[in-house]
Design a protein around this nucleic acid. Structure first.
Lengths: 238, 238
DNA sequence: GCGCACTACGTACGCTGTACGTAACTAGGA
DNA sequence: TCCTAGTTACGTACAGCGTACGTAGTGCGC
């Protein structure tokens, strides 16, 4: 093979196989699936080139025939879960459709808690990302607005889904290799937060804390935020 | 010392020093500053326990007296840049104030391009984070809404800042240890994107691409998104 | 049928986080 | 005042990481 690329490269621009030589034993999809399986089971930190290779049943360095850098493996993983998006027929109600898209993205992240951690490092623009973008634009067809505004809305919604879900999920990933549980960690953190608020150094924060009774319904908060943003882009409400 | 904690721990709940034994040679703030210096200069991947220790002029393992786990070092770093937020006197115009807060967060991220990568792994609730939250609540005092709605608005705005800025910045961090420049990488990626759109597989995306002439003004896009969200929470507009 | 592009993969290097053990130091209690 | 227990400091060591490089074998295109 002799030497990795000395020039930037998009893995999707690489043909999956060229004619010459022995038939490749694996496919990109298969590799991605293996990596996703490991990440789901052991967390993102369990995904090492060695581990993925072992899961596939090949030598570590053989993987590099398919994936030039580990970062590209991440790219493959994000694209793979992107395939879980159901690209339904738009109903004509762009608000409902976009809400559904957001809920689905959220569900994907809950299924694959490592996704948010990869989101801020990955290129974007993988095949499934592009298909999803196209799908969103199809859903937004009934919305009377310039294409630029539509893509801005899509980005905004995706951003909200990511940040709202990421914080909720982070602890799952973080505690995976720890000798204590997610609940224990959350309890300790909440205790600390309570002690800080109780010092009186943050009066308004304290008031906000007092106001809320019982645990926050994250799902409701999430939905409310989405509705607000949709409102902001709805011509019928302005 | 004998053994690290076997129970979850919030580093901020740990007293910075206890009475007994030799005086500590370093402070949390000093350690955080060293780590931030390295991350700014070499990227987040340059921040290793060894490297930070060397920057401080002490043995690697001495660091562990101050920072039980590397993750806590990240916590310190995020808190340290949080101090760069100017906690100005609220003007009474909550929209303008929140816009200013968002712009400042964005500026901080541009100064420290590694921040977004840490955002989705870190606890939150560090001292400076709490101070910032309190400050935001102070800015939102004139807004007539329940405290819950206000915190939701703050979370929403922060989320938008993070996602919008993260994507813009990711390439900087990614290409830092690569033999090619950020511009080269972006050019290659845009070329790929163009080729994909040109296949005709994504007609609506293609249309959106055609519509836009010249490079996107990211700053304008960012500001527009913020304004929309503020609209959505402005009682005067509903 | 030759050659070359390709796959496969073992070895090795420099790096990581950090467990553990030991030596030096100093504040608090007797 | 001295003793001791808790602390700091830090060298060594280990398991694991990404991946550069070299070699051996395979099969398509000329």
């Amino acid at each position: 093979m002799a030497g990795r690329a000395a020039v930037p490269e998009v893995i999707w621009a690489r043909p999956e196989r060229t004619g010459r030589g022995p038939k490749p034993a694996f496919t990109r999809a298969g590799i991605a699936a293996a990596a996703v399986r490991i990440a789901d089971a052991e967390g993102l930190d369990g995904v090492s080139m060695r581990h993925v290779a072992a899961e596939l049943g090949c030598g570590t360095m053989s993987l590099y025939n398919y994936v030039p850098r580990k970062e590209d493996l991440y790219e493959l993983m994000v694209d793979a879960v992107g395939a879980e998006h159901e690209m339904f027929e738009p109903t004509g109600d762009w608000r409902a459709d976009m809400l559904r898209n957001a809920e689905e993205t959220r569900a994907i992240m809950y299924r694959h808690t490592w996704v948010p951690r990869l989101m801020s490092g990955v290129y974007g623009f993988s095949p499934n990302t592009l298909r999803y973008l196209e799908h969103c634009l199809a859903c937004l067809e009934p919305l009377d607005a310039p294409a630029g505004t539509k893509t801005e809305l899509i980005a905004l919604l995706n951003g909200i889904v990511t940040t709202y879900t990421a914080n909720d999920i982070a602890t799952v990933e973080r505690t995976r290799s720890m000798p204590w549980s997610e609940e224990e960690e959350n309890a300790v953190r909440m205790a600390y937060l309570g002690s800080q608020v109780a010092t009186g150094a943050y009066p308004r924060l304290a008031a906000a804390f007092m106001e809320q009774s019982g645990p926050v319904d994250l799902d409701a908060v999430f939905k409310r935020a989405l509705e607000r943003v949709l409102d902001a882009y709805d011509p019928d409400l302005r």
